[in-house]
Amino acid sequence: MNEALINTLNSLVSNATPLVIAAIGETITERAGVINLSLNGSILLAAMVGFAAALATDTLLLGLGAAVIVGAVIATIIAFSTIQLRRDQVAVGFVLTLLAAKLADFLGQPLNSASGPSFSKQPIPLLADIPILGHIFFEHNILVYFSFVLVIGCWFWLFRTRPGLAHRAIGERPEAAYARGTSVNRMRYVYTAVGGGLVGLAGASYSLSIKIGWPSIISYNGDGWIALAIVIFAGWHPFRVLLGAYMLSALRAAASDIQKSSLNIPAELLNTGLPWILLIVTLILVNTGQIDRLLIALPARMRGRFQALLKSDAPAALGERFEAS
């Protein structure tokens, strides 16, 4: 295989990583029935704080930790204001996304264009030696490996464990979950915070791995919204989240290639416009049930197995408050 192509695929995987982490985080939150709409702002603020912390302490892990806390705190504010204060999730999330972005801008000024530590590649012994695939998937930094583990772990959790069953149930039908002894609102806090923590981690993986420093992430501003769209495209399924993030990353690579080939297309349009247009098209396909039709085409025996993967319905209680009795 062409070496340039393999290199492209390798960077495609690493560039998609923050999207994967953020979208899995949001999947975890939304599977529990809560919408965290603050992704875009959370990612920016966490990227800034994560970079600042890593710079100040010269410890990458502390940078990650600080970013995770930022994401989790913002998510917890959303959980608190919707569960305790009964505010509208969408409105609160929207306000927070704006607030966090402004805050990042303002507080991040002293950092402007400072250079700081970053994650370096650590090929995985043996696996990296696999022809082609080894280079594409196993010559990365640990954040990328973490995203692989995260996707698989999230799938296992949701579909192969008992607490995961309860997790899905509180997003589908909280009344039924309550009747089975699950503390719906407590678990919603937990999953919202965990999901938000991952969103924060996604922020740090921009500023400590993809576009090191602050405010270099600005060229990825908007990825929070894209991550939200990927969750919908993915039908709230971890494997499809991975697929969606990689597809989007591939589109971006293609767009920048076209741009280099110096056709007379404005760079802005390609960079930011194209992915959005394609997202809208896929969302329309998903929401009109085109993907669900695939299920009907499958032989009955296999339907059960693919049900979860191909289903595109949102968790039925997404965005709904729950109050016991």
Partner: peptide, 23 residues
């Protein structure tokens, strides 16, 4: 009935019944 429509009969039955971590 307080069940979860988007799940299988099996999942609905399992959920709430005592058992181990793995399904």
């Amino acid at each position: 009935p307080l069940d979860v429509p988007a799940m299988t009969v099996m999942d609905n039955f399992t959920y709430g019944a005592p058992g181990a971590f793995w399904l």
